[in-house]
């Protein structure tokens, strides 16, 4: 039976969709059968981050309303044969889906997939309720900023209220140079405040922007962010992976001439 993982944050713009895309793609690279579900009805984005926006015929709301079968709405990824996307509807709103319906959908997908990854919309309203309804575990994404950490705390409280079995933290967009000069909270600071298990630290990386431009998640490539996401995937499937050394200095010449 598959595991349903919701990726959530409370605050918008901290990297939920990017995390969903990379974790999903990474798990597919590890030969897991994965489906990504975008539950941000009316503001869908996961399709463009995955580069699959031109293949959408049916969407989540069509499935819930019975306009099509689940299989018809699932978009097979162009690169990985075990990766699928269930896109959100763009012309509807959050009230089109109820938590109970999401729960049923997850139950229907569980026998077919190893991992069902749900991209949660920002906020704590109906969209959040829908996204967490069928989830077995949660990944809370935050950045080392006061506003994001505060919202993450609220979300963790709500997940506890939903009796989420497992909640892990991802600290996204960390800049070690700023941490060192004392201008950014460290991941340790964030973990101390939020007091939940840390499953990954993703450094701020220009590669993420390039990857989104191209619609190709960078998980697993040789960038720091690519490696960090792959490590998160390995930890999700239960492997013990040491945290990346984000302090590693680049050689003098690579700093002078290198692009990365």
């Amino acid at each position: 039976m598959g595991e349903v993982i919701v990726v959530t944050s409370g605050k918008g713009g901290v990297g939920k969709t990017t995390t969903t895309a990379n974790v999903g793609t990474g798990l597919a690279k590890l030969d897991k059968k994965v489906v990504l579900i975008d539950t941000d009805i009316g503001l869908r984005n996961l399709d463009v981050v995955m580069g699959l926006e031109n293949r959408i015929v049916y969407n989540l709301v069509d499935v819930i309303e019975g306009n099509c079968k689940i299989k018809q709405a699932l978009i097979k990824d162009k690169r990985y044969p075990t990766l699928y996307l269930l896109p959100s509807a763009q012309t509807r709103d959050k009230s089109a889906v109820k938590p109970e319906e999401m729960k049923q959908l997850c139950e229907q997908l569980k026998p077919e997939f190893d991992y069902i990854i749900i991209d949660c919309p920002a906020g704590i309203e109906q969209g959040f309720e829908n996204a967490v309804a069928g989830a077995d575990r949660a990944l809370v994404v935050t950045t080392p900023e006061v506003s994001a950490v505060r919202d993450a705390d609220r979300i963790i409280g709500l997940l506890e209220a939903h009796e989420m079995k497992k909640t892990d933290l991802i600290v996204n967009r960390l800049r070690m140079d700023m941490v060192k000069t004392g201008d950014m909270m460290s991941s340790e600071d964030v973990v101390e405040i939020l007091a939940i298990n840390l499953i990954g630290i993703v450094p701020d990386d220009e590669g993420i922007i390039v990857a989104t431009n191209n619609g190709e998640p960078l998980v697993g490539n040789d960038t720091k962010a690519g490696q960090a996401y792959m490590n998160i995937c390995k930890r999700i499937i239960g492997e013990e992976v040491p945290f990346l050394d984000l302090n590693a200095k680049k050689g003098f010449f690579s700093r002078l001439f290198g692009r990365k």
Partner: peptide
């Protein structure tokens, strides 16, 4: 276009 549909036939833009 992202997609063009005529009657029941769908074409999508090249990747």
């Amino acid at each position: 276009p992202m997609q063009i549909r005529i009657a029941d036939i769908i074409a999508r833009s090249p990747d």
